[in-house]
């Protein structure tokens, strides 16, 4: 992966985040949550800074980042699309909806469209099983999504 350059200002912000948690290694997961909401993702360069600030190895930080599915090392699209693959959604046809998104966006799960607009991921149960199958675009929840409703959802964000 190509090296990315973080701006001095952003680096300072990150260091401040670490400081609010007293540069405590035990707070690593909280630091990563803040860092991801600040940058959108957790590239290697960022992990190096966090490791230094919390006085632990980069391997330790990387180990934690890759362990949890909530953390991502790849930038997400402007409109992250998440398909719920919890059991309730699965039995009500979530897989077909996922296939349709893949087909229309021409990307696989975990990828982002070349224009950076959409990224596709799966998640497990958002607790809205009454609306199964459920799709999230950013924070917005779409319920009872059928494969032929996929185009409309994408169109909403394509204008």
């Amino acid at each position: 992966m190509a090296k990315i350059k973080l701006s001095e200002k952003k680096i300072q912000e990150l260091k401040d985040v670490c400081k609010t948690f007293n540069n405590d290694k035990g707070e690593l997961i909280n630091v990563l949550h803040k860092a991801q909401s600040l940058f959108g993702y957790l590239p290697a360069e960022l992990q190096e800074i966090i490791a230094k600030e919390l006085n632990c190895s980069v391997a330790h930080v990387y180990g934690v980042v890759t362990f949890y599915s909530y953390f991502t090392m790849l930038p997400k699209g402007k409109h992250p699309v998440s398909i719920c693959l919890g059991t309730a959604c699965y039995v009500r046809g979530a897989e077909k909806v996922l296939e349709e998104f893949k087909r229309q966006l021409k990307i696989q799960v975990g990828e982002t469209t070349p224009d950076g607009k959409f990224s596709l991921s799966c998640l497990r149960c958002v607790g809205a099983c009454g609306l199964a199958p459920v799709v999230l675009v950013g924070e917005k929840v779409y319920g009872r999504v059928a494969p032929d409703g996929v185009a409309d959802i994408i169109a909403e964000y394509n204008t």
Binding site: I29, N30, L32, Y68, S69, Y70, R124
Partner: peptide
Amino acid sequence: IRYGAGAF
């Protein structure tokens, strides 16, 4: 409060 990060 402590946050989980998506691990069953």
